[in-house]
Amino acid sequence: MAHDSHEYIPEIAVDRNGNEHVVQGWQGDNYGGKLGFWLFMLTEVMMFGAMFMVLTYYFTLHHADFIKASSELDRTLGGINTVVLLISALTMGLGLLKMRSGDVKGAKLMIWATMLLAVIFLGVKALEWTNDYKEGIFLGLQGLQSGNEFSKPFGEILFFGMYFTMTGLHGFHIIIGIGLMLWLLKRINSGKVTPEHNILHFNIALYWDLVHLIWVFVFPYFYMTGAGAIHG
């Protein structure tokens, strides 16, 4: 793309006393790029926030059912995933630090490591969902429909409904994140993202932090509320 090599020279505005003021253009506006992405993160927070609100509301309505349903989730696999995601946030952050300090090769390595951890996360998640499915707990199965012999109580239907919705949506964000990281590697390889111009890297690291932050709330809310229950 030819225009990226075309250097942008900011304009100068002159006031009535002859003082010169640099005009901020949309080109090369790193601060604007960061601001825009922070605002986008805010929309994600609102979206997941609404779902947490729904969850809280039903937790107050169906307290015992929620705790029982939560105790049936696999805390080991969930816990492993939490650790995996935390480490991936670390590798992502280290990658950005390396990029800033000029170590492009190290940064790429860290991005690959993050992607590997993301794939592991998805693999564990798939295993967990498969186990749930075998136990008759999955969207659309009879246990989560009302009015038949396998029907679970209302609270458990709601709990698992929200569980699959929210972890599913979170998993979708992980997949998007892997795509973004592949794109980032492509941009680094073609020299569009450099230690001086790392806004894309910064924003994707920010995105990954949010994805991991959401999990930090999802994990205790779904897995830990029933941790001490009798059925656990």
């Binding site: 169906h62 969207l139 989560l144 429909q145 009302s146 009015g147 609270g155 409904g161 929200m162």
Partner: peptide, 22 residues
């Protein structure tokens, strides 16, 4: 997200807005 939840409700019956599922 509300519309997405309504869609999931309609096709997978996650139960959030349907009184027959609590």
């Amino acid at each position: 997200i509300t519309l997405i939840l309504a869609l999931l409700e309609k096709y997978f019956g996650i139960g959030i807005f349907d009184p027959s599922k609590g």
